[in-house]
């Protein structure tokens, strides 16, 4: 029985923003299917009442004093940008989406 379909793999690729060739999609479907089949053996393990382990060594979150230290100089912040324009990172024109944090402005 197949655990994941080509269509699901295509959907995932959209979600993960990966352009995959048809060949890659086909191979990916097979690979993920085999891996999911393997991990399915975990279903037999009874984990009721077990607290999820999110951190290996448990201690409380340390807190940082609210102090400002020097920012990166603008040129260093932008030095690695594949495309820089003035003091901005440049990207193809954004069509604002619902997920944005409301920081949209027209120039």
């Amino acid at each position: 029985m197949s655990r994941i379909t080509v269509e699901e793999v295509r959907e995932l690729a959209v979600l993960a923003r990966l352009a995959l060739s048809e060949q890659e999609i086909a191979r990916m479907t097979g690979d993920l299917d085999a891996i999911l089949d393997y991990v399915d053996a975990m279903r037999e393990l009874d984990t009721t009442g077990v607290e999820p382990m999110t951190h290996a060594v448990p201690f409380d979150c340390p807190l940082r004093a609210d102090q400002v230290a020097p920012s990166l100089p603008v040129d260093e912040a932008l030095a690695n940008a594949p495309r820089r324009e003035a003091n901005f990172f440049q990207v193809p024109r954004i069509v604002p989406g619902p997920a944005g944090g409301g920081g949209e402005e027209d120039l």
Binding site: F88, F89, Q90, V91, R93, I94, G100, G101, E105, L107
Partner: peptide, 20 residues
């Protein structure tokens, strides 16, 4: 945490300012 700001220029590009 807040996100940065996107500025949309006319010429088919947008700019990103990550101060915020």
């Amino acid at each position: 945490e807040d996100a940065g700001k996107n500025l949309h220029a006319a010429a088919g590009v947008s700019f990103v300012d990550l101060n915020r």
